[in-house]
Design a protein around this nucleic acid. Structure first.
Length: 634
DNA sequence: TACCCGGAAGCGGC
DNA sequence: CGCCGCTTCCGGGT
């Protein structure tokens, strides 16, 4: 079992508000089960398994949550149902019935459900097969929760209890760092960027479905079919506290961590995960800050705090992470007061419109989220050195790696491993290393571009096709020396890169730095290649773009005009502009529905792997874009 | 010693 | 089954 490497010693006496989330992040492995405390606070007449509640218990529960979480008064008329039905309500449903409190109710319920489930089956079976598929758990509408994050990544590496993981996923959803934008703007074709729907903006469909289900006995039966079997059995043995208390740290860790982490959302996985787990994935118990003030159970208190802070508004998802770093103990004074993610706009480049949300599931996105936290709560881990140029520094490599590890549920994550992942970004021009400066990297694409990475991929494809055509004609009239082939490849890559970036201009026109930086970089590499020098010795290292010299260098429009374009032009016979035009035409033709000014719908994924493999291919074909990109990057 | 690099193999999710 | 995005491990360089 893995132990949480994060130090457990407290930082002294942080403000209560801070305890709630930050502490947990830093000391996620806090001992006892939060559930235990949650349960102890439940009205005694309530069974710990909400699915067993009758109507009266439901009312008792709702009143209790009103008090405990200072929630607005519920309209109890809207909750004329038993516990099972209540459990079937989606977050959205609950939000509709009790605005402002739906999330909390939902999460508390999920916590209880999950716990009940856990108790009903052999706990911590290390066999992947043991878990009951969450799929059948609650027959909720398959369409509900569009924005539900995909927490698959939380599934323990060893395949442990997927059901558990699915529940965690849900929890994370609540506490997510969710930038609130609907999960997949990608998939929401046409949805305007910048739209940041509240956490509970689900389709009415789902709501209705669920509502219906929730009030129907049939659904009850169905819902119980999955969980019920084991549920009833486990019912009696519900000394949950024992259970969780006795768990090893690893288990505890898993219990808590997830809540604190930004919930990754993946458009694609959305529907799937929704269908699979979405049925109100249980969560973990939390409590009210006031409920416990002692330090010991503080983890509980904190969780509650988190819960209250995050669940409703889903703002500060990353609050949990706040101020702490495994290794850095200087808790920042910042407190997880208000969220902000709902209204937060990414600002690698301040003017960048909101983009599709990958929600921390991808490393670069995770980093962006930390970097762009409005309250700069993660500055102890990572911080911009020059936001305009995308240069950032990992202040606390170990701590950041831990956070990332938590996010991905790879608890043994360290900087070495994480940095390997970062290095994979080099070849696709997402990142580059700032030479000479430790722990400093530079984003080569802004969030918008990154979010549209698929478009880039698409562009690459179209470019590839073009190149193939061009080359086929070119080969007829020229003898391809290895150098010229290389030059062509490089040029193609450069042009591709430029086109990819430029294709995003409608969204990031103001990001001159980036476009130019990319162009400069490409051209530099080209120049180096032409001159037979190692690309790594590039003279104009943009990595130091934070310096005035380089900044002005990058800004030098004439340089771009005179150096970059001609290079690209000369190499493959097409100007960047032409390439851009072509690629845009191609992409628009491929996606007729897309408007001329908007990017074509994403189709492909950026491939890191393949590029790597393709590098070794003998055939020096322009098709080998990856190789080119790689050259350019390095 | 820590950082940095990139190859190679593998894994889980899709 | 293949792809993607890492994760893990490693040998080597600075």
């Amino acid at each position: 079992m893995k132990l949480l490497p994060i130090p457990l010693s407290p930082l002294g006496a942080p403000p209560l508000s801070m305890w709630s989330s930050d502490f947990l992040w830093r000391y996620p492995a806090a001992p006892p089960s939060p559930l235990a405390e949650l349960k102890t606070q439940l009205p005694t007449q309530l069974s710990s398994d909400p699915r067993l509640w009758g109507r009266e218990e439901v009312v008792v529960f709702l009143r209790w949550t009103e008090r405990e979480f200072d929630l607005p008064k519920f309209e109890l008329d809207l909750f004329q149902m038993n516990g099972k039905a209540l459990c079937l309500l989606t977050k959205n449903d609950l939000a509709e019935r009790c605005p402002g409190a739906g999330d909390i109710i939902h999460n508390v319920l999920q916590l209880l459900i999950r716990d009940a489930q856990m108790l009903q089956r052999p706990f911590r079976s290390d066999l992947p097969s043991s878990p009951i598929t969450p799929t059948n758990r609650y027959p909720l509408s398959p369409h509900s929760h569009p924005p539900t994050p995909n927490w698959n990544s939380l599934v323990p590496p060893n395949g442990e209890n997927s059901f558990y993981a699915s529940h965690l996923q849900h929890f994370m959803t609540s506490n997510s760092v969710t930038l609130s934008p609907a999960p997949s703007i990608d998939s929401q074709a046409g949805s305007p960027p910048g739209q940041e729907p509240p956490a509970n903006i689900f389709s009415s469909n789902s709501t209705n479905d669920v509502a219906q289900a929730s009030t129907s006995d049939a659904s009850d039966a169905r819902s119980s079919s999955a969980s019920g079997a084991s549920a009833t059995a486990g019912n009696s043995s519900r000394s949950s506290s024992n259970h969780s208390d006795s768990e090893d740290e690893s288990a505890n860790f898993k219990h808590k961590i997830p809540k604190l982490l930004p919930p990754p959302i993946h458009h694609k996985s959305l529907s799937n995960s929704l269908q699979k787990h979405q049925q109100s994935p249980p969560v973990t118990p939390i409590f009210k800050e006031s409920s416990s003030s002692s330090t010991t159970p503080s983890h509980l208190t904190h969780q509650i705090g988190d819960f209250k802070q995050h669940s409703i508004f889903f703002n500060g998802a990353l609050d949990a992470v706040t101020n702490t770093s495994g290794s850095s103990s200087s808790a920042s004074p910042s407190t997880p007061t208000t969220p902000g993610y709902l209204s937060v706009k990414r600002e690698f480049f301040p003017d960048t419109p909101t983009e599709p949300n990958t929600n921390g599931r991808l490393l670069w996105d995770f980093l962006q989220q930390l970097l762009n936290d409005h309250q700069q709560r993660y500055s102890n881990y990572i911080a911009w050195k020059c936001r305009d140029t995308g240069v950032f520094k990992i202040v606390d490599p170990a701590g950041l790696a831990k956070l990332w590890g938590i996010q991905k549920n790879h608890l043994s994550m360290n900087y070495d491993k994480m940095s390997r992942a970062l290095r994979y970004y080099y070849r696709v021009n997402i990142l580059r290393k700032v030479q000479g400066e430790r722990h400093c990297y530079q984003f080569l694409r802004n969030p918008t571009e990154l979010k549209s990475i698929k478009n880039i991929s698409l562009l690459r494809q179209t470019m590839t096709n073009q190149q193939q055509q061009q080359q086929s004609t070119a080969t007829a009239s020229s003898t391809t020396s290895s150098s010229s082939a290389e030059a062509q490849n490089s040029a193609a890559a450069a042009a591709l890169q430029a086109s990819a970036l430029a294709s995003l201009l409608p969204q990031s026109t103001t990001n001159f730095h980036h476009l130019t930086a990319a162009l400069v970089q490409s051209s530099n590499n080209l120049k180096l290649q032409f001159s037979g020098r190692n690309a790594e010795d590039e003279p104009h290292d943009l990595s130091t773009s934070s310096s005035n010299q380089n900044e002005s260098f990058i800004k030098n429009e004439s340089f771009i005009k005179n150096e970059c374009y001609p290079l690209i032009h000369g190499a493959n016979g097409l100007t960047t502009i032409q390439l851009l035009r072509q690629s845009q035409e191609n992409s628009s033709s491929q996606s007729p529905s897309s408007s001329p000014t908007s990017l074509s719908p994403p189709i492909h994924h950026l491939s890191l792997h393949k590029e790597n493999q393709e590098q070794h291919q003998q055939q020096q074909h322009v098709e080998e874009m990856p190789t080119d990109l790689r050259k350019i990057n390095n």
